[in-house]
Nucleic acid binder design. Structure first.
Lengths: 325, 325
DNA sequence: TTGTATGCGTTATCAT
DNA sequence: ATGATAACGCATACAA
């Protein structure tokens, strides 16, 4: 296929002039510009971007690290990211890693290899120390509160939000409170676990090992929780459920077995998902869309402004009162 | 940062030798290899992949065109794609286009610009003729049956599947059948519309404009359908619903208003989603995961085998009988 | 087995 | 306003 040299030859100008036309530089006469554009059109020429990336040292791409695409939590963060990336004319490379350290390091190596201009980490299995090593290669922004390690982050306080939810249940008179979540060793999950343990201890509420249920990933997992509850000698009277879709599964299945919500069981969801609105699930909104949008903006400011001063931004959560508590 | 030249200088060998070590070529003595690896380690050297892409003419990346990431349909196809891409050591670039022709052309231009090695189109607003123009730049595979236009495709027959569903409802004794779907002018939707119109005509079933409902995107849209049904002077007694999550919204809301499913209203979903299993929604499985997996394999065979002969593969659907019809 | 020289396609630099 | 040429970092044909 044609290259810039050939265009120059046919148009009867230098490669520099062609390059100038290509990049909308000033200082090129309108008649020469016309000739060049004409030839480009005729030969259906387009740039080999790899050459451009090589010499400019930029690629116009940002990688996003997340464990699963197919999850409400991450897909809504992605929407925020995508919206801002579009505005900034940046390309997003979505990297689903399944919490695999190896996969995540591959992405960071892409940054080192100059294949991308920056990385947004929505959730990670990597330690802050390892991530910090890569900041010399380009801007890195995380959507987790992993402390101040030399790279920017925007996050919600999962600990505080969860405590807030527990307090809400407590204020509504509930004392026997259970909790279920996705991955037991996910980072946000560990914050919620701490909040759960500490709140129960402070208020001297009853703790049962079996009231903590993990590995809930979809609606069916939620339904399974209902099954489990039914077999318990002593049941919780309220459940904190990380993810409205899980809560939905729980609620639907519980009702199937004649339980009334919130009469027999109060359910508090998290993340304000569409299914939650439908079932009128009381939930905690965590501004996930804004989290994604802000993360991209932070990257963009860093790569343009050249400011290497990291920013740490906390997003506020809020409880949406509906009818399952 | 260090480049191959510097490594060569410090290691006391030629750049060729360094390159050979980098690419695991034979014909390099073990002692020189050791020295090179040592220096690479010490200087923390990694290749500038843009240079590699430039000279090799390959990037190891494939773009995926789809309208929305945040949709069950597409995310499950993505999982199939991701699985195969991982095996083949290929990177996936997910391009959410919102059915924007402009955005989709941008992706095809990436292929032209050598930024990617191929394109998988899951859903598109582009015509087959336009897509065909780009096949000279690299392998293109679509997940739609758009006829034989010189590029491979793997697809389910939305028309046949939908007819099959209608026939199932018909066999169960239903005559007043409604239909709801997402985007009215989505490509799969148009097949379903044809199937709907033609089936009704053939069987001389009653047709009401208001029994066709579009723009259903999430659980809440499904709930809205229930509201609409209630206001109709004459209601359908069965609904074909494109997407189990929409069907879920419809069913939940309908039950809220005292309707029995399938007694007062039979509901047939599509796509065999988790929420559908939970609510025991009768549905049509379309092998979406396999569609994604097969699409990637086709790309990979084409770029390796060099075979430019397009493949057209149809996937079979099947009805999963549960309890909403 | 190793090295030299050339080229990939573009932009940056500097001269005019 | 325009052009010649260097430079980006790497892989590879060819020579040794």
């Amino acid at each position: 296929m044609a290259n810039i040299k050939e265009i120059a030859r046919i148009a009867g100008v230098s490669v520099t002039t062609v390059s100038r036309v290509l990049n909308n530089h000033p200082y090129v006469s309108s008649n020469k510009r016309a000739v060049v554009l004409e030839t480009i059109e005729q030969l259906k020429y387009t740039r080999n971007m790899n050459a451009v990336h090589l010499i400019t040292g930029r690629t116009g791409a940002v990688a996003v690290i997340l464990p699963y695409i197919n999850s409400f939590y991450f897909s809504i963060v992605m929407e925020g990211l995508a919206h801002e990336a579009l505005i900034a004319q940046y390309r997003l490379i979505v990297c689903q890693t399944n919490y695999s350290r190896e996969e995540e390091l591959k992405v960071l190596d892409m940054l080192r290899n100059k294949e991308i201009d920056g990385v947004v980490i929505v959730s990670t299995a990597l330690t802050p120390e390892i991530i910090a090593e890569y900041t010399v290669y380009g801007p890195i922004v995380t959507c987790q509160n992993s402390g101040k390690h030399g790279y920017s982050s925007v996050y919600t306080e999962h600990y505080a939000a969860f405590r807030h939810g527990l307090q809400y249940l407590y204020d509504k008179g509930h004392r026997k409170i259970g909790y279920c979540d996705g991955r037991q060793n996910g980072s946000s999950s560990s914050f919620r676990q701490s909040a759960y343990h500490e709140f129960l201890a402070e208020k001297r509420l009853p703790f049962h090992e079996e009231w903590m249920i993990f590995d809930c990933v979809n609606e069916e997992s939620g339904a399974a929780i209902a099954q489990q509850l039914l077999t318990m000698p002593e049941r919780p009277e309220a459940m904190m459920v990380a993810g409205d879709h899980i809560a939905a599964g729980l609620i639907i299945e519980a009702r199937k077995h004649g339980m009334s919500i919130p009469g027999d069981l109060a359910v508090m969801g998290i993340d304000n998902q569409p299914i939650g609105r439908l079932l009128e699930i009381t939930t905690i909104d965590n501004q996930l869309y804004e989290m994604g949008a802000a993360a991209f903006r932070m990257f963009h400011e860093q790569i343009n402004g050249g400011s290497h001063c990291p920013v740490y931004r906390k997003l506020e959560h809020r409880i949406i009162e509906r009818s399952t508590v």
